[in-house]
């Protein structure tokens, strides 16, 4: 193996691209879980976003419209989950799984005529001045708009949850839905809004995969990215900035693993490809060991069904 053949600066730059899909999906799921809802359908919403965004971009020729379409598709799909869990009071774990299975089927049906096509390329946005900095400039400040958007979204989510009244209400609903209901907050409506936001983010993440990262449509192309986004939220102890750190760490591992494959490490590709999943498990174990659910920072009402009796 020849480690010197790996361009470490290029690796840093591609790390940000590799991390963006799970960062987008992860920050969306964080808001959903902060509202006390566990949506395990991230994978399904991501892949539906991937094909919806791809199809919209190919048909319209505009990647911007593609991303928009993906967000709408993800949000629409998440509404199915909202109806099931918030109105039909179904089990959230089972409903999330249903959403994933449904999304996988839906996406492969929608994607049949799009296999092998090339999407319109998403333009790079060189930030003036900053991108001219030697070495760091091209690495950090010469990406497409979605990379910066995802970081801005993390900042916005953090500020929303920490400093706004609406954010506080959302957290209250997630911590104790009975109390929030007693105070007159519309628990179901707030949760539906959070679920829709999570769906839109997952859709964007999926579209980033099919429009920028890969970029083409293949069946089942998310290959667990949605699940990794779910793990990311646990890793982040439900804190927005830590989702960013986690996503970049994870993106780094993915990119490094791909580079090691290219550099000819004497380990078969199949075994190297396992590494992101194994590392996710190890991280989950480290995060959960020796600490109680409360210390981890999980919202107290997470995953519990709310039924207003009064």
């Amino acid at each position: 193996m020849d480690l010197s053949s790996i361009n470490w600066l290029l690796l840093l730059a591609s790390l940000m691209v590799a991390a963006t899909p799970i960062l987008l999906a992860g920050i969306g799921e964080l808001v959903v879980e902060k509202a006390g809802v566990l949506n395990l359908g991230v994978e399904g919403m991501m892949i539906t976003g991937a094909i919806a965004g791809f199809a919209t971009a190919v048909e319209s020729g505009s990647p911007t419209l593609g991303f928009l379409g993906a967000a709408v598709a993800g949000a629409l799909l998440s509404m199915l989950f909202a109806v099931l869990t918030q109105f039909a009071l179904a089990n959230q774990v089972a409903s999330g799984l249903a959403l994933t299975l449904f999304g996988l089927g839906l996406s492969s049906l929608m994607g049949q005529s799009y296999v092998g096509l090339k999407p319109p390329s998403t333009p790079k946005l060189d930030i003036p001045l900053l991108s001219d900095i030697p070495v760091l400039g091209p690495v950090l400040f010469s990406h497409d708009l979605m990379v910066y958007f995802s970081i801005a979204l993390v900042a916005a989510t953090w500020a929303f949850l920490k400093y706004t009244r609406a954010g506080l209400t959302l957290r209250a609903v997630g911590e104790n839905h009975e109390a929030a209901h007693a105070l007159g907050y519309k628990v179901v409506a707030i949760r539906c809004a959070a679920i829709a936001f999570g769906g839109a983010c997952a859709g964007l993440g999926g579209a980033y995969l099919s429009l920028v990262r890969v970029p083409q449509w293949t069946e089942g192309m998310t290959s667990g990215a949605g699940w990794i986004a779910l793990a990311l939220v646990v890793f982040a102890s439900w804190k927005p900035w830590r989702v960013l750190i986690g996503a970049y760490l994870f993106g780094g591992i993915t990119v490094l693993q791909l580079n090691l494959q290219a550099a000819g490490l004497k380990v078969p590709v199949e075994y190297l490809s396992m590494s992101p999943y194994i590392i996710t498990i190890i991280v989950l174990v480290i995060m959960s060991s020796g600490r109680s659910r409360g210390a981890l920072g999980a919202p107290a009402s997470l995953g519990r069904t709310f039924h207003a009796t009064g």
């Binding site: 395990l40 774990v93 290959s223 667990g224 699940w227 990794i228 779910l230 793990a231 646990v234 078969p268 199949e270 075994y271 490809s273 396992m274 999943y277 194994i278 996710t280 498990i281 989950l284 174990v285 959960s288 060991s289 020796g290 600490r291 109680s292 659910r293």
Partner: peptide, 22 residues
């Protein structure tokens, strides 16, 4: 360790799939 069994069991599907290919 109290690790979530949903995520771990699912991650292991992808590990198993790669093992199968190998």
């Amino acid at each position: 360790f109290g690790t979530n069994e949903i995520l771990v069991s699912l991650m292991l599907v992808y590990v198993a799939e790669n093992l199968l290919r190998g």
